[in-house]
Amino acid sequence: MSNNWYNFLSPLGAIFNDDKEVSFNASEQSTISSLQGDLYLTDLSYLGLIEVSGDDKKTYLQGQLTNDINAISSTLSHLSGLCTPKGRLRALFTIFAQGNKLYLQLPYPLLEETLKRLKMFVMMSKVELTNVSDSLIKIGVFGQQAINQLKASNLSIPGEPNMVTETDGIQLIRLAGETPRFECIGCVEKITALWQALQPKAQLINTSHWRIMDIEAGIPNVFASSKEAFIPQMLNLQILNGINFKKGCYTGQEVVARMQYLGKLKRKMYRAHCDAEQNVLPGDLLYSEKSKSGQGAGHIVDAQLSPKGGLDLLAVITSDAVDNNDIFLDEAMQLPLTIVDLPYSLEIEES
């Protein structure tokens, strides 16, 4: 993390854990009962950035990732996964462009090993991969007044989720959700000035609150504890435009295509709630009365304590467990999960 950015946030009560997740120690942070206020602001240092440059960058990434890299432009970002040869996700990226460079955004704890893995296959290609997490600062802005306040800072607003704008060195990525939500990216000087303009009108929120908004929007991620736990379709990437089935070969493509055209997807990502307040990690097992196998009912994608009580979560769950209302957080099967509607349909053409 940039020392200048850390030194700027520290007097505001920002405390970072080893994964660069932030919490603000102001007393009101523990009493947030809703994420439907007028304006919220947070730091996104928990997301790392890999810069990809060089003449062969798109050709190289096209052979590594699940989505069509040629579709990315200065005005469009999208999800894309890095798979093992067996089609399991090593990492899931938000990819966006800036000038003649591409940026891969992923949880910071996965950055170094992912960067090392990607560099293994550069070989003779004209490609450079660099960790730029400290030089490009990322903040999140959310709330009914987000658009008005960003406009007041003379920033151009992207109109739809995944769309991107750039104004005077600051990029805005619009994120999915019923309430306007944006990621703002720029150098430390630009983002510091933007933060100072927004903060008097905003409530500071923790990383956990920001991740709840991803859960509500049905947007998955792959974390260090869930690495290689899922194939792309289990995380609904075929619905979220995170896979292109016509782009040609990439690592794991045969498995992903076989599932799409020849297989039956028995596990999908659902949104759920549990009336329990206990720590769970991405990748943790879920349980079922009727499934005594080691695979259980499914696995956690992400779970956060809800401001309204209990746990909000995304989980990959078997269709049978969902149909039978037979999903539990604990092995004793005392903590049932309740399925909550996603903001998109899972009923799409599988072929």
Rank of each mutant, 00 (worst) to 15 (best):
K126V: 07
C187K: 09
T114L: 06
R181D: 10
I212G: 00
W5L: 11
S288D: 08
V52R: 01
A14T: 05
R90L: 15
D275G: 01
T66A: 13
Y287I: 02
L155V: 10
G242Q: 13
P107N: 05
V256M: 13
I50S: 03
L346F: 12
M163S: 11
A71Y: 14
E189L: 12
T75D: 08
D302M: 09
G37T: 13
L305C: 06
E277Y: 02
I231A: 03
L65N: 09
L198D: 02
N206D: 15
I157H: 03
L65W: 12
V52N: 01
I139S: 00
T94V: 11
N70M: 03
R88C: 05
N162F: 05
R174G: 06
Q304P: 03
V164T: 15
M259Y: 12
Q64W: 12
Y108Q: 00
A202E: 12
L129G: 01
I50W: 05
D19E: 15
H273T: 11
I173R: 04
L265P: 00
G54T: 08
E347K: 14
T66Y: 12
N67K: 00
N131K: 00
N236V: 03
K246S: 09
D312C: 07
L136P: 00
S33F: 09
T165R: 01
R90Q: 12
P158D: 10
I327K: 02
P85Y: 07
D68S: 09
K151P: 00
F245A: 06
W5Q: 10
R271S: 05
K264R: 13
D320M: 09
S23L: 04
Q203W: 10
I348W: 08
Q144R: 07
Q144P: 00
P220L: 02
S80T: 14
L265R: 02
V132Q: 05
F142H: 08
I219T: 07
K246A: 14
N7H: 14
V141M: 06
I185Y: 03
S30D: 13
G143W: 04
N279H: 06
E331S: 08
A217L: 09
A272T: 12
Q238Y: 03
I339W: 12
S306F: 06
E277T: 10
Q149I: 01
I32A: 01
Q295E: 13
I219G: 01
L286T: 04
L342T: 14
N241G: 15
K266W: 11
I173W: 14
T130C: 08
M259R: 10
R90H: 08
D330Q: 06
L111R: 05
N25D: 14
D302E: 11
N325E: 14
E128G: 08
S225Q: 10
N17Q: 13
T130E: 09
L281H: 13
I339N: 01
S226E: 02
D19L: 05
A202C: 13
S80E: 04
S291L: 02
A272M: 15
V132N: 01
S288L: 06
L311W: 03
L155A: 09
R211K: 11
K246E: 08
L305N: 04
L76Q: 07
I139M: 02
V22R: 03
Y6S: 04
E350I: 12
